[in-house]
């Protein structure tokens, strides 16, 4: 596949701190790649470099063969950026926001109106077109954010933690959007902290640590050893620290438990052990909003109550 986005030996820094150290990464058209890693690993910096808002001190960035350093405006026209939050004007309506960002990409007149209408329709916001963005929910705002990045039909789409602060339903919708964008032929690169998102929504995962690419490959290969069964769930209530420790001790030898914020991850060698671990977790009263197993790629959306019944 031809690389729509190409980062070659990119080195970027903030002041004296090197944030990205010699990163090389390609994203092909019709491919979704997740950048994953702990805080400060260089995910957002990589995205900023790929978007052209941060100039690398070394290396090169190109989109559809257009080098960013040689032709910054030509490069920018090929890239759509969805910043993490507040990347629209709350005081303006969804339609006004899209019109403004569309004009920045040289759109105008009938074509702009057509694309705004299509963009709103694409993210299911046609009936909220004239609502101020500040009055929309977090999930809907994120959809306006996405629509604004798609107006000029960019070949490369960059999303910085698109599911941060979204409820489970909005998160699922956002991940479904990524799949649709891939099917439409966009090259998609997004950052996330959550391995379940990376497993469910991506063709490849690039793992960053301290600004270096430490692994890159298919989600199943990178995020879990072959043969491992994994289950992700969303927690309705935070798990007390002592309970998490106690559960981890109880499950030792059967499954691994990982809790990050309101996300829970269980991994086991067999489906049987995974089921046992899930039953134990539910028996302790952990309130799960839904769970999913990337092995089957089925989003089951089963609540704790249903499972207990």
């Amino acid at each position: 596949m031809t690389a729509a986005l190409r980062l070659q030996a990119v080195r970027a820094r903030y002041g004296d701190r090197v944030a990205v150290a010699g990163l090389t990464l390609d994203v092909a058209a019709g491919e979704v790649v997740a950048l994953i890693g702990p805080n400060g690993s260089g995910k957002s910096t990589t995205l900023a470099v790929a978007a052209g808002v941060l100039t690398p001190v070394a290396g090169s960035v190109s989109a559809c063969g257009i080098d960013r350093a040689a032709d910054p405006h030509g490069f920018a026209a090929k890239v759509g950026l969805v910043p993490q939050d507040g990347a629209t004007y709350d005081e303006l309506t969804a339609a006004q926001n899209l019109e403004f960002f569309g004009r920045l990409y040289g759109l105008g007149g009938r074509e702009l109106r057509r694309r705004v209408a299509r963009g709103l329709s694409r993210v299911g916001l046609t009936d909220r077109a004239h609502d101020r963005v500040g009055t929309l929910s977090g999930g809907l705002r994120q959809r306006v954010n996405l629509a604004a990045a798609l107006l000029h039909d960019p070949a490369v789409l960059l999303l910085d933690e698109p599911t941060a602060a979204l409820d489970p339903a909005s998160r699922d919708a956002a991940l479904a959007d990524l799949a649709r964008l891939r099917d439409e032929g966009h090259a998609v690169l997004f950052t996330t902290h959550h391995t379940d998102e990376a497993e469910l929504a991506c063709d490849r995962v690039a793992v960053l640590d301290a600004g270096r690419l430490v692994a890159c490959g298919k989600p199943g290969d990178v995020l879990r050893p072959r043969g491992r069964e994994v289950l992700y769930a969303h927690l309705r209530m935070p798990v007390p620290r002592f309970l998490e420790k106690s559960l981890r001790r109880e499950l030792a030898g059967v499954a691994e438990l990982e809790v990050t914020g309101n996300r829970l991850r269980l991994a086991a060698d067999t489906a049987e052990n995974l089921g046992r671990a899930l039953a134990r977790v539910l028996a302790e009263g952990l309130d799960l909003d839904g769970y999913r197993s990337p092995g089957s790629s089925i989003i089951r959306g089963v609540s704790s109550e249903k499972v207990r019944q």
Partner: peptide
């Protein structure tokens, strides 16, 4: 200080 500025600066606008 807002994300919208990042988007404006990422656009092909001098």
């Amino acid at each position: 200080r807002r994300g919208a500025w990042v988007r404006v600066r990422a656009a092909p606008v001098p």
